[in-house]
């Protein structure tokens, strides 16, 4: 129960700046928790596909992800904050992706 209270506290601090308007109710909490679990599960399953590149790298990546999840949970509130409609944020990620693509495709292939 202690864990649940802690989680609700985190959610309230993220989603309910104005507690009168945005009450963090049971259904909201459960949907955020399920999103959290789905994120972890699917990222871990997706990490298994690294075996096609190199099995050793996959083991490192999966263990690293597990440790990461242990320390940074809950992730969803952070992701929600990061994934906002701020233009500077979007542009930063767009340019970052462009740089990654340029580097990977120019130097990383063959």
């Amino acid at each position: 129960m202690n864990m649940y209270e802690k989680l609700v506290q985190t959610l309230k601090s993220t989603f309910g700046q104005d507690p009168e308007k945005t009450l963090v109710n049971g259904s909201k909490t459960s949907s955020i928790v399920s999103a959290e679990l789905v994120l972890m599960a699917s990222v871990l399953v997706a990490a298994l596909t690294i075996r096609l590149v190199s099995p050793a790298l996959m083991i490192v990546a999966v263990i690293g992800l597990m440790l990461l999840f242990m320390y940074v949970t809950p992730i969803m509130p952070k992701l929600y904050k990061e994934h906002n409609d701020d233009f500077n944020n979007m542009m930063f990620y767009a340019v970052l992706t462009l740089a990654i693509f340029a580097i990977v495709f120019y130097w990383g292939v063959f």
Partner: peptide, 24 residues
């Protein structure tokens, strides 16, 4: 193969992110 891998990776991230963000 790199082009296909890039397409796959981004698509998987899109699926996970899109649906998790929809939940909240």
């Amino acid at each position: 193969p790199t082009a296909q891998m890039a397409m796959l990776a981004v698509s998987v991230i899109a699926m996970i992110l899109g649906i998790c963000m929809a939940m909240v």
